[in-house]
């Protein structure tokens, strides 16, 4: 099947990891108001699978008894949800105002150049996904970069290579 952009979409829910689905099922079962908690179900799904592929959205829609279009409408509305797989590490550049006025955009450009990817893209070797996020509330450390959950504060353009190399070396 093709989606609206003409890309093929895999809607085969049988391809999903059974163990993870069991956990998701148990979570959905535990909810009284399933429809009203769609966003919570999607959070759970994303934390289990890492992202929300189309077949998982369809699975959730059927499980709750909602049209798949409604589920997709919600997924695509909120920036926290991603429909694309992520690299091993996610590099999140804070683009909140406090970080911006201290040059976050320059650092973001340096990451893009160094990793050769755009915003919300994964590197070819699947090591990193680069994305921008809004204020993480550590404005005192601006500009701030998160690699997975680790916070780097007062980041300079010169440190970009160092940070990336550190993770490349670890693996």
């Amino acid at each position: 099947m093709k989606n609206t952009k003409g890309k093929f979409v895999d809607l085969d829910t049988k391809k999903l990891d059974i163990e993870k689905l069991k956990e998701l099922d148990a979570y959905i079962e535990s909810l009284e108001d399933k429809e009203g908690n769609l966003i919570h179900v999607l959070h759970k799904g994303q934390s289990l699978f890492g992202y929300l592929p189309e077949n998982l959205q369809l699975y959730i829609a059927r499980k709750i008894g909602l049209p798949a279009s409604k589920v997709n409408g919600v997924v695509s509305f909120y920036s926290f949800f991603t429909q694309k797989p992520r690299g091993k590490h996610t590099i999140s550049m804070c683009m909140g105002t406090a970080c911006y006025v201290k040059g976050a955009d320059k650092i973001f450009d340096a990451f893009k150049a160094e990793l050769n990817v755009g915003n919300n893209e994964m590197t070819e070797d699947k090591m990193f996904t680069l994305k921008d996020i809004r204020c993480v509330g550590a404005c005192g450390l601006a500009p701030v970069v998160l690699v997975d959950d680790k916070v780097y504060g007062h980041v300079t353009v010169e440190q970009v290579k160092e940070i990336i190399d550190k993770y490349r070396k670890e693996d």
């Binding site: 429809e35 009203g36 908690n37 769609l38 966003i39 919570h40 999607l42 959070h43 409408g73 919600v74 509305f77 909120y78 920036s79 926290f80 949800f81 809004r134």
Partner: peptide, 25 residues
């Protein structure tokens, strides 16, 4: 608790209520 999912407009109270009901905010 109800969690948001990254949408600025959900801070507006009517949007917030729609989001809490599991819809687009």
């Amino acid at each position: 608790l109800k969690l948001g999912a990254g949408a600025f407009v959900c801070g507006e109270e009517t949007a917030l209520i729609h989001s809490m009901e599991g819809c687009r905010g």
